[in-house]
């Protein structure tokens, strides 16, 4: 479904659901969830082949390597009927399928436990390799953070993806330019990610990660015999003006008047 209104409404609703969940939980990662809203909508509501449902072994897979952004993934999984909607208020609670970081043994439809940065990318590489070895269909999509790329295992995985010519693997890098403590370029510079990935023999597209036309333009490209990397230039906290590009909104929650203002900017009322 590529109707612009549908896509934009989905992204807006997912941000609202995410804020609901995180406020209820009292903690969670808003900024990095909001930066990937459009990417998740493009994947789960159009690009990915979800087959006959969560347990279909031949459907496409998604790995959220930046596992801390999971509230918005839970919002997707509930909306598409993979995860139970009644669990919405249980994020980070004891016994919840919605653990603080993704636990695939507890949450139906979640393709991989993540949270330890870099690990999801490595596992996704193994999934793509395993599917290819068995001659099975199924494309593997993975979203990593940009700060996450400071983990060495990411580059081990990039080398392997090239070595095994994994053209059934698409790595999307959420390039919001902020990590927990500071801008990435202050802590441990990553520019140019595009050049780095090209030198690892990836096919690289660099896009505006909030523009559906550009997202689909990149996702629709096919590269034979090469892994694909999409550098999605995004805004951390996208959708709520006072959160956008603010390093504090990695883990902080809106408080007081900020709450109503955040909902208002997302086109909703607090508590509705």
């Amino acid at each position: 479904m590529r109707d612009p209104d549908f896509l934009e409404n989905k992204a807006r609703q997912l941000r609202i659901d995410t804020l609901d969940m995180i406020l209820k939980a009292g903690s969670g990662h808003v900024g990095g969830s909001f930066s990937i809203a459009e990417l998740l909508v493009a994947l789960y509501y159009d690009k990915m082949n979800l087959g006959k449902g969560a347990s279909d072994p031949d459907r496409d897979r998604f790995v959220l390597s930046k596992g801390h952004a999971n509230p918005i993934l839970y919002a997707v999984l509930m909306d598409i009927g993979f995860a139970p909607k009644e669990a919405k208020d249980t994020l980070r609670r004891y016994g919840s399928p919605f653990q603080g970081h993704p636990d695939s043994t507890k949450c139906p439809g979640l393709d991989c436990s993540t949270g330890s940065l870099g690990q999801g990318l490595s596992i996704a590489t193994g999934m793509a390799l395993g599917l290819k070895k068995q001659g099975r269909p199924g494309h593997v999509y993975v979203i990593t953070g940009d700060g996450e790329l400071q983990e060495g295992i990411c580059w081990e995985a990039f080398m392997a993806a090239n070595a095994f010519k994994l053209d059934n693997l698409t790595v999307i890098i959420d390039r919001n330019r902020l990590q927990l403590s500071a801008p990435t370029e202050v802590t441990n510079p990553l520019d140019s990610i595009e050049d780095k990935l090209r030198s690892f023999n990836f096919a690289v597209d660099s896009i505006d990660g909030h523009d559906f036309e550009q997202i689909f333009g990149a996702l629709d490209k096919k590269y034979e015999g090469k892994p694909h990397c999409i550098v999605a230039n995004t805004i951390k906290g996208m959708g709520v003006s006072f959160m956008e590009n603010g390093v504090k909104w990695h883990g902080a929650l809106p408080a007081g008047d900020e709450i109503a203002e955040a909902y208002r900017e997302l086109g909703a009322s607090y508590g509705k």
Binding site: I123, G126, L129, G130, K133, E156, M159
Partner: peptide, 26 residues
């Protein structure tokens, strides 16, 4: 040989790739 994978000198990634292989039934 077709079921043997040398990941190079990268033990962490070897374990991660193994986790991925097991997720798709191997």
């Amino acid at each position: 040989p077709e079921r043997y994978i040398d990941v190079g000198i990268a033990e962490q990634n070897m374990v991660g790739i193994s986790a991925g292989l097991s997720k798709v039934g191997l």
